[in-house]
């Protein structure tokens, strides 16, 4: 069976704790989960902040250095909400259409997962604010700004010294 995914962004799809391959064809993303003998399937849509895991500081520092003061590494997601949504049901030989509505920090909306079709069990469809990740990200942003300023000031001082010298 096929599950079409709309506005997925950085949400990962798992089945039996294994990541599913996300295909992209004709402008649409989709996954093809396995169904059991009874035609039942269960998939999990997961999103977690990169600041939620262990060793987050070391990883962030490493990429800040490799990415030349963090300028050449992908931006961290603004949204520090986590999602762990399970969708299960019986394969009705029709593709499933799943839309994702991401939280908007500006408007304080905690959205989640929406299914176009009915008759499927959806658990944990809403985003949950991850306060720990929020605090860690703010700390990283503050530290990164200070470090960039320090490096730029140091570079300017060294250049001036070189010119005068």
């Amino acid at each position: 069976m096929k599950i079409y995914l709309y506005n997925r962004k950085d949400i990962k799809v798992f089945q039996n704790s294994q990541p599913l391959k996300i295909n992209y064809k004709n402008g649409r993303e989709y996954v093809e989960p396995q169904v059991d003998e009874q035609g039942r399937f269960e998939v999990e849509f997961v999103k977690k902040s990169e600041f939620s895991g262990g060793l987050w500081f070391i990883k962030a520092l490493l990429f800040w250095i490799i990415g030349i003061m963090g300028f050449f590494t992908p931006k961290y997601a603004k949204c520090n909400h986590s999602l762990d949504c399970k969708v299960s049901g019986v394969d009705g030989n029709v593709p499933l259409n799943v839309s994702f509505i991401h939280p908007n920090p500006k408007y304080g909306v905690c959205a989640g997962v929406k299914l176009k079709e009915e008759g499927y069990l959806v658990e944990g469809a809403e985003y949950i604010l991850d306060k720990k990740s929020c605090a860690r990200k703010k700390f990283y942003s503050f530290l990164s700004g200070i470090a960039r300023l320090a490096v730029i000031v140091l570079a300017v001082v060294l250049i001036i010294k070189a010119i005068i010298g």
């Binding site: 950085d10 990962k12 704790s17 294994q18 990541p19 997961v46 977690k48 990169e50 895991g53 262990g54 990883k59 990429f63 490799i66 990415g67 030349i68 050449f72 590494t73 992908p74």
Partner: peptide, 24 residues
């Protein structure tokens, strides 16, 4: 079992390599 953190790390590595290659 591949965890979500490993997947995110691999994506970040790929993204960083791409940006550095464009810089070069």
């Amino acid at each position: 079992m591949e965890t979500i953190q490993n997947m995110q790390l691999k994506e970040r590595i790929t993204g960083t390599l791409l940006r550095l290659s464009w810089l070069a």
